[in-house]
């Protein structure tokens, strides 16, 4: 962790896939892709593809999970067995459990949970293909699926990863960059309220570098936010 790898990830200001340091990959977003769900979405960043579904709010069982004065969010992030090079064994993993938790927390401040006592809102995200930044891609997918479900939100939530390779700040890390960067920093935030709702980091950074990454994520996250808005509007214009 934090050590430089031998792979050259950036040369003459260009990344391996030809992107500039702050450039986000080609993205695709759709909503309403799962007829059975109350809300759903498909989000692709480069080769990373997330499909999200929202079910609820609905009365929560088993009963002991219910909160008498508010609803709760239940979230599961899962990788399809065929989503990466080496097959992922189905079932729970420590990594998946943690990511599910931080995604859930990213939406806690956004929903009016006090309006749904005793209920649960289920957010399920399936990564059907992974090439880095899967948790922030999941955040974008969950944000769209919640909006598509018609659940009132204080703001949308935008996810974007930042990182550092060879003293350069980069955004939207792909798989290779994710594995070999000096640091990666997944961030989710509410674009209007300017509040960060998910923040993790691994690797090594100075204070200044971290500030710089967060600033760039929030600035360029505007592009992702606009794309979310556009996707939702398009759905309801049809």
């Amino acid at each position: 962790m934090g050590k430089k790898s031998d792979i050259v990830l950036i040369e003459n200001g260009k990344r391996l896939d030809g992107r500039k340091p702050l450039e986000i990959r080609d993205t695709e977003m759709k909503v309403g892709v799962i007829p059975n769900a109350n809300g759903s979405s498909y989000v692709r960043f480069g080769k990373t593809i997330a499909i999200a579904a929202v079910y609820g709010p609905k009365l929560l069982y088993p009963k002991h999970l219910q909160e008498s004065d508010r609803g709760i969010i239940q979230c599961r992030y899962n990788m399809a067995p065929f989503s990466v090079d080496e097959r992922v064994r189905p079932g729970t993993s420590r990594r998946g459990t943690e990511i599910s938790k931080v995604i859930k927390l990213a939406f806690e401040p956004v929903l009016f949970l006090e309006n749904y006592p005793k209920t649960g809102i289920d957010i399920y995200v399936e990564i059907i293909q992974a090439d880095g930044s899967t948790r922030v891609t999941s955040v974008n997918a969950a944000s769209l699926a919640l909006a598509n479900a018609g659940i009132p939100m204080r703001d949308l939530v935008v996810g974007l990863s930042g990182g550092k390779i060879s003293d350069t700040i980069i955004l939207d890390l792909d798989g290779k960059e994710d594995n070999n960067s000096e640091a990666d920093v997944p961030v989710a935030f509410m674009p209007n309220k300017k509040e960060i709702t998910l923040l993790q980091m691994d690797g090594q950074l100075t204070n200044e570098e971290l500030k710089d990454i967060i600033k760039n994520v929030m600035k360029n996250g505007e592009i992702v936010y606009k794309k979310q808005i556009e996707t939702l509007k398009k759905r309801y214009d049809e």
Partner: peptide, 17 residues
């Protein structure tokens, strides 16, 4: 293997197959 991922139906729940 087959997984009834919970995105697919309201009755599908996370957990072992």
């Amino acid at each position: 293997g087959a997984e009834f991922s919970p995105i697919a139906h309201k009755d599908f729940e996370p957990g072992p197959p």
